[in-house]
Simulated assay, not measured.
Amino acid sequence: MYETLFSLSSPAMVFWILLIVLPFWRVTRWLANSAIFPIYLAALYAVGIIAAILSNGLGFVSDFNSSEGIIRLLSNPDFALIVWIHVLCFDQAVGHYVYRDNMEHRYVPLPLQSVLLFFVLMFGPVGFLCYLILREVRRRGKRSAG
């Protein structure tokens, strides 16, 4: 079942390509405004985590407080796939935020937005941090110029 959920998560890559390559296309804008891909990934994750809880109970939560526990959890292939969908979902949500915020306010030029979205896709928090730093630099520049 978890491999099926993993396979079902792959269409989210299409949205990343649209965000990065075709940010002005009306389909891209509609998909971003609807947030359909993060919702879709969240639903897949919900199915996976509920199935894991129903079959294993909530005991795995006690593993969250140690590195050994996390390693043990991630060594379970089913749990690792659920965690991967969790990561995909949050990266997708952050990508949506960066896209929508920048398309509204134009803190960075679109080519740089595409680079930042690629960083969010590949390196999650690093891409998000880069965007936030550049956004703040741009905001301060506008305040001091105005």
Rank of each mutant, 00 (worst) to 15 (best):
L129T: 14
L73G: 01
F118A: 07
C130N: 06
A145H: 05
I49A: 12
S55N: 09
A32E: 03
K142F: 04
A52N: 08
G69L: 02
D91C: 01
S75P: 01
R138H: 10
F60G: 09
I39D: 01
A35S: 12
I36V: 13
Q92R: 08
L41Q: 10
P111M: 03
S55C: 07
S62W: 05
E104I: 05
V47F: 15
V137K: 02
H86L: 05
Y97M: 08
A145P: 00
Y97Q: 07
L5H: 02
P109F: 03
W25H: 14
P77Q: 09
L19N: 00
S66N: 05
L81C: 02
I82E: 00
L116E: 03
F6Q: 10
P38C: 13
R139M: 06
S34W: 12
L117F: 10
L22T: 05
A93P: 05
L121R: 00
G57S: 12
P111H: 04
R138P: 00
W30E: 09
L18F: 14
F64R: 09
M122H: 13
Y99W: 03
L121C: 08
P38R: 10
P11V: 13
F79C: 04
N76E: 08
G124H: 14
R72T: 08
V94Y: 04
Q92V: 00
V61T: 11
S144I: 15
R26C: 04
Q92W: 01
I50W: 11
G59W: 00
N33Q: 11
P11C: 08
L121I: 01
V94S: 10
I70H: 09
R100K: 13
I49C: 07
G127D: 01
F64W: 10
W30N: 06
I70M: 13
L31T: 06
Y40K: 11
V14W: 15
N33W: 12
S9A: 14
L81N: 02
Y97C: 00
G127R: 03
Y107F: 15
L58S: 09
Y2I: 02
P125V: 14
A43F: 04
D91I: 02
G95M: 03
L31N: 04
C130E: 04
Y99P: 06
S55G: 05
G57N: 08
C130D: 08
T28E: 05
S66R: 11
A32G: 06
M13T: 00
R72A: 06
Y45A: 12
S144Y: 14
M122A: 13
W30F: 10
L134W: 04
L73D: 04
N102G: 09
F60E: 03
D63T: 07
A42E: 07
T28Y: 07
V47M: 14
T28I: 11
L81V: 01
L44I: 07
S67V: 05
P109R: 02
S62M: 05
Y107K: 02
D91F: 04
R143T: 15
L8N: 04
I49H: 12
S144T: 15
L31Q: 06
L8K: 02
L116H: 00
S55Q: 13
A43Q: 05
Y97D: 04
S144F: 13
T4K: 08
L74V: 00
L22S: 10
R26S: 09
Y97W: 13
L31A: 14
C89P: 01
I17S: 14
V87F: 04
W25D: 15
P23Y: 04
L8E: 07
R100V: 09
I71W: 15
